[in-house]
Computed example of a mutant assay.
Amino acid sequence: MSQPYISVILPIYNVEKYIDEAFNSLLNQTIGFTNLEIILVNDCSKDGTLAILERYERDYENVKLMTLPKNSGAPGTPRNVGMQHTTGKYTIFLDPDDYIPFDAYEKLYRVAEEWESDFVMGRMISFNDSNPTGHQWFHITFRDYLMKKSYFNVNIDEVPFFLQVKTAVYLKLVRTDFMKENQLKFVEGMKNGEDKYYDMQLFTLAKKFSYIPETIYLYRTRDDETNPSMTQQDMEPTMLNDCKAAMLVKSLLTAEQYQTFQINALRSLFWKLINPGFNSLPYEKKVFLLEKMTPVIEGYNPNIIQKYYKFEYPVVSLISKREYDLAIEYIKLQISRKTWYLEGKQLLEIKNTQDKMLSSISWKLTKPLRKLNNLRQIMR
């Protein structure tokens, strides 16, 4: 068998509901399924996932299945294991509860071959789990005008704004030789934030990378975009992981580069801070988490922070000064502002739906019938 064009690594745990959709999107790739090497790393799933994976391995020669001896509890370990078994010319990741457009890998592969980049990156679209065929949206970083054009064989010194783009390892097709020569790997044991370190290794080590403003990934969100939630149980460990990841990344970057990356780090943290879940934490826990954030924001550039976080900038300023009580009060205001905005947005959507119905032809045609029905009700 000739060398696969692309090795696709899937870290897998309890995804029997979604895995067929992800796998079928690989089967239907225009680059040709037989040109892919599919590496499934099962992290000791407890549902019916393993039986599905065994069927894939049985039915397709280019599917490799391995199961970890014990559950790692985080995607870093299965990704690292998968990276040790790649034989494709390029390597990419796919989370098993997401899926990809039919021509995603062909688009990335063509650019990689033409420009001989260390890695090629595309963009993603998010969709809501409860309504996959409904509203879809680009992450805010891909709405920026800078991300609406192509970049071929650039480096991070030429385009430093890529350091603040949403971390997404599944958007990057990486030359396998480059990956192995630089011994790239993920931080293990972290349920979130572990991909930031891998991502920043790519940007800082690559002599040349490319980006195309093409959608090559469909990302499933488990929370409605208009109703985000973060439980107290999840709040502390996820924020601590974000802080740990930021500190690991800081060791890779210059001071100036880190100031740009801080936007990336703060995006993850603000999603949790400006959230009712943070509001409901005990006072001591809030202060503890803000203290952990302090090293993350040290040395920030006010101009960069205000460019991306106009309303949240006072939070950064107060935390940097260790004015934690004032920061907590300002966070409360921001949570209220966000709540009212989201509720207003929902009401506006309801109004627009009603207006559309009232202006429809069917509503106008049935007007006489409604009048007749009302008259009958009165005469009873």
Results as ranks from 00 to 15, higher is better:
residue 322 R to H: 10
residue 369 L to G: 04
residue 285 K to M: 08
residue 18 Y to I: 12
residue 147 M to V: 01
residue 51 A to L: 06
residue 96 P to W: 01
residue 47 D to A: 05
residue 98 D to W: 04
residue 2 S to F: 10
residue 212 I to D: 02
residue 29 Q to M: 07
residue 179 M to S: 07
residue 296 V to Q: 01
residue 230 M to V: 08
residue 135 H to E: 14
residue 41 V to Y: 04
residue 43 D to M: 05
residue 26 L to P: 06
residue 112 A to E: 01
residue 2 S to V: 02
residue 328 I to M: 15
residue 365 L to I: 13
residue 96 P to D: 11
residue 352 N to Y: 07
residue 342 L to H: 08
residue 149 K to S: 04
residue 237 P to Y: 04
residue 90 Y to V: 03
residue 153 N to Q: 07
residue 146 L to E: 13
residue 198 Y to E: 04
residue 356 K to V: 05
residue 123 R to W: 01
residue 379 M to S: 08
residue 189 G to L: 02
residue 281 L to I: 04
residue 349 E to S: 12
residue 353 T to M: 11
residue 60 Y to K: 03
residue 217 Y to R: 08
residue 276 P to T: 09
residue 371 K to L: 12
residue 60 Y to H: 09
residue 103 D to Q: 04
residue 160 P to W: 09
residue 266 L to G: 05
residue 177 D to P: 02
residue 356 K to R: 13
residue 236 E to R: 09
residue 205 L to G: 00
residue 141 T to H: 10
residue 302 P to Q: 07
residue 311 F to V: 07
residue 257 Q to H: 06
residue 90 Y to N: 10
residue 333 L to A: 13
residue 17 K to L: 05
residue 67 T to M: 15
residue 374 N to L: 14
residue 375 L to Q: 11
residue 110 R to E: 15
residue 62 N to W: 12
residue 290 L to D: 00
residue 340 W to N: 15
residue 353 T to Q: 15
residue 357 M to S: 06
residue 256 E to V: 01
residue 4 P to T: 03
residue 124 M to L: 10
residue 367 K to P: 02
residue 371 K to H: 11
residue 113 E to L: 15
residue 327 A to D: 11
residue 61 E to R: 14
residue 65 L to A: 10
residue 230 M to H: 06
residue 244 K to W: 15
residue 227 N to D: 12
residue 212 I to P: 00
residue 219 Y to Q: 11
residue 203 F to P: 00
residue 291 E to P: 00
residue 46 K to Q: 09
residue 184 L to V: 07
residue 62 N to C: 03
residue 99 Y to S: 03
residue 193 G to I: 07
residue 333 L to Q: 14
residue 240 L to N: 06
residue 181 E to V: 04
residue 375 L to H: 09
residue 242 D to V: 05
residue 334 Q to E: 14
residue 363 W to N: 11
residue 334 Q to L: 15
residue 328 I to G: 03
residue 6 I to A: 01
residue 288 F to E: 04
residue 72 S to R: 03
residue 90 Y to Q: 06
residue 170 Y to F: 08
residue 241 N to S: 09
residue 199 D to C: 10
residue 115 W to Q: 14
residue 210 S to G: 12
residue 347 L to W: 12
residue 305 I to W: 15
residue 204 T to N: 03
residue 266 L to T: 03
residue 250 K to C: 02
residue 347 L to P: 08
residue 125 I to Y: 06
residue 353 T to G: 08
residue 5 Y to I: 05
residue 169 V to K: 02
residue 360 S to D: 13
residue 10 L to R: 00
residue 1 M to R: 13
residue 289 L to I: 03
residue 292 K to M: 10
residue 156 I to V: 07
residue 364 K to Q: 12
residue 229 S to I: 08
residue 337 R to G: 11
residue 212 I to R: 01
residue 274 I to V: 14
residue 336 S to E: 15
residue 147 M to W: 02
residue 257 Q to V: 01
residue 186 F to R: 09
residue 375 L to G: 06
residue 30 T to K: 14
residue 27 L to C: 07
residue 122 G to K: 07
residue 104 A to S: 13
residue 323 E to R: 13
residue 180 K to S: 02
residue 208 K to I: 02
residue 113 E to A: 13
residue 136 Q to M: 08
residue 64 K to Q: 13
residue 97 D to E: 14
residue 197 Y to P: 01
residue 209 F to W: 13
residue 129 D to G: 00
residue 163 L to T: 00
residue 293 M to P: 00
residue 36 L to Q: 03
residue 264 N to Y: 05
residue 46 K to H: 07
residue 21 E to A: 02
residue 171 L to C: 04
residue 347 L to G: 01
residue 322 R to L: 08
residue 249 V to P: 06
residue 285 K to F: 00
